[in-house]
């Protein structure tokens, strides 16, 4: 098996595919399962005026927070951005445009975009601000609002394991938005914790087939962040 998809580091993996004004998808939920190494390489590239599609916007100094700090993002398409002070400042100052999107609509927009579906109808958001200016259609006596599919110039995803063909496996809730985003990027770049030879992952366990993944960078032992460290005492019975 060739190594045509394997890049030496995150900078090399992004070489030649970043440009000002582009649309970027970034996987993760909160700080769980984010492609942090790739995000840091986007920062180093100084590409600007980015539209970023991501459920959240990182926190100050971590994840997409670093691209807000460097003012490389002009528009965010997200469902929830509450954890970020810098975000609030830029948003209130009018430096940052935000398209608030219900979480399930956002993930379905990405799924649809990757699957070649330009639009779909959902009952989420009917009768709310989210439906304003959008087509509403009645099916079987119930109103649904039309939402567009979303694609990106480049999708950045985090996976637990990949083989050299780009087949991906995720771990626990770090899966979140990563599988759909992998399908919706014209070019998808995956940072992976474990890189194995083709044939080493049971084909029945592959979550994202390699056809969706163009570039892979191996990032062993990444630092993982916990936003809300909640525990219970040892003596307590569950």
């Amino acid at each position: 098996m060739s190594d045509r998809k394997i890049y030496a580091d995150a900078t090399a993996a992004l070489d030649g595919i970043l440009k000002d004004g582009m649309t970027l998808m970034s996987g993760g939920f909160g700080l769980c399962g984010i492609p942090e190494t790739l995000i840091n390489a986007v920062k180093a590239s100084s590409v600007k005026d980015l539209t970023v599609i991501s459920n959240n916007a990182g926190v100050d100094g971590v994840g997409l927070g670093v691209l807000l700090e460097s003012k490389q993002i002009s528009t965010m398409i997200s469902s929830y951005v509450g954890e970020n002070k810098l975000f609030a400042q830029q948003f209130l100052a009018g430096d940052l445009k935000v398209v608030f999107t219900p979480q399930g609509t956002l993930s379905e927009q990405i799924r649809a975009g990757g699957a070649g579906i330009p639009a779909f109808y959902t009952k989420t958001g009917v009768g709310t601000l989210v439906a304003e200016g959008k087509e509403v259609k009645n099916f079987d006596g119930e109103d649904y609002v039309m939402e567009r599919g979303l694609t990106a110039d480049v999708a950045l995803v985090h996976a637990y394991m990949a083989d050299r063909e780009g087949n991906l496996v995720f771990r626990k809730t770090a899966r979140n938005f990563n599988p759909m985003m992998a399908t919706a990027g014209k070019i998808t770049v995956a940072e992976v914790e474990h890189l194995v030879d083709s044939g080493e992952i049971d084909p029945d366990h592959i979550i994202v087939p390699g056809v969706y993944v163009q570039r892979i960078v191996h990032v062993p032992n990444p630092v993982k962040h916990i936003e809300q460290r909640t525990t219970r005492p040892r003596h307590q019975v569950a």
């Binding site: 469902s79 929830y80 951005v81 209130l92 935000v98 219900p102 979480q103 399930g104 609509t105 989420t124």
Partner: peptide, 10 residues
């Protein structure tokens, strides 16, 4: 400051 609706609408 608007934080977003998360998954509540869905």
């Amino acid at each position: 400051m608007v934080k977003g609706m998360g998954g509540a609408m869905d």
